[in-house]
């Protein structure tokens, strides 16, 4: 700590001790294990690395995980906005119950979600049977993966946008109306721009979660190589074959992309903060 920067000296004790413990513990539990992943991958030559990543099975798995996660995040973006709008702006029976239950995908263990969604959407399931009657197969197809990824992403958009919409002052909308704006203009020109940073953050969080999701997906997926095998499952398969380097290489690609998403989220939030302050 440089004393010159601080006008008021902090008199609280324990900074050195608690900071030391924090850094040590963070290193042992998080940083060193993560470093082991990159260490293992660095044993591969570039040709070997791209050989693993470029193989048909790996590429299919990565495409499936990222593609379906993106599609599921789009659905969560749209449905999340509809849910938030209904919860914040309207009143309807059991509204508080629906509001509370939105967090269930956070709290419910993923394996439980996996077996439940599979039972629900299997050919004899409550929803699977009527869907099968009109020729739509969900369980054990890529569509099943899509359903599980939607489930797991529901809370992200809702919970990031909900407080922002609730805090939005109704006077701004009234001011827009008194200046002659129609409802459509108020929504597209006043409300949506205010919600956009939260909407994008929720979208990115839902996407990042769905990309790495394992438990809720593998039961309903079918897990056919090149068709319905997600990247995290391929990592598990490579591990069980003792092909550690292969597993590590796939993991590195997924991690780097996740970090880029987190970086993007931080940029969105910083951008919205500076924009809000410049107003």
């Amino acid at each position: 700590m440089t004393g010159g920067q601080l006008e008021q000296r902090n008199v609280l004790p324990g900074f050195g001790l608690t900071m030391g413990l924090t850094l040590t513990w963070l290193s042992i539990i998080v940083l060193i294990p993560l470093a082991a992943l990159f260490l293992k991958t660095s044993e591969l030559s570039l040709t070997e690395f791209f050989g693993i990543i470029g193989s048909r099975r790996t590429l299919s798995a990565l495409k499936l995980s990222f593609g379906l996660a993106l599609a599921a995040a789009v659905i969560n973006f749209i449905m999340g906005m509809i849910v938030v709008w209904a919860l914040v702006r309207y009143d309807f029976p059991l509204r508080r119950l629906f509001d509370a239950i939105v967090d269930l995908p956070f709290a419910l263990p993923t394996a439980v979600a996996g077996v439940a969604l599979t039972a629900l959407f299997a050919e004899k399931g409550w929803l699977g049977a009527p869907l099968a009657a009109i020729g739509i197969k969900v369980a054990f197809t890529p569509l099943g993966i899509f359903v599980a990824m939607i489930f797991i992403g529901i809370p992200f958009v809702v919970r990031t946008v909900e407080p922002v919409l609730a805090d939005l002052e109704i006077e701004i909308e009234e001011a827009a109306v008194s200046l002659g704006a129609t409802r459509w203009h108020v929504i597209t020109k006043v409300i949506v721009p205010s919600l956009m940073p939260a909407m994008l953050t929720g979208f990115a969080l839902a996407f990042a979660r769905a990309v790495g999701e394992y438990g809720s997906v593998i039961f309903i997926a079918g897990n056919l190589p090149n068709v319905s095998e997600i990247a995290p499952l391929l990592i598990v398969i490579r591990l069980s074959e003792f092909r550690y380097a292969d597993a590590a290489a796939i993991a590195v690609v997924m991690l780097v992309v996740s970090f880029l998403i987190i970086f993007a989220i931080n940029r969105i939030q910083r951008w919205s903060l500076t924009r809000a302050m410049s107003r």
């Binding site: 998080v30 992943l37 293992k40 790495g212 590590a248 997924m254």
Partner: peptide
Amino acid sequence: LIDLPFSVSPVISGLIFVLL
């Protein structure tokens, strides 16, 4: 850095300890 584990796939969270 403290938040990092939230953005790591569960499978990768297990994998790093197997690699170590």
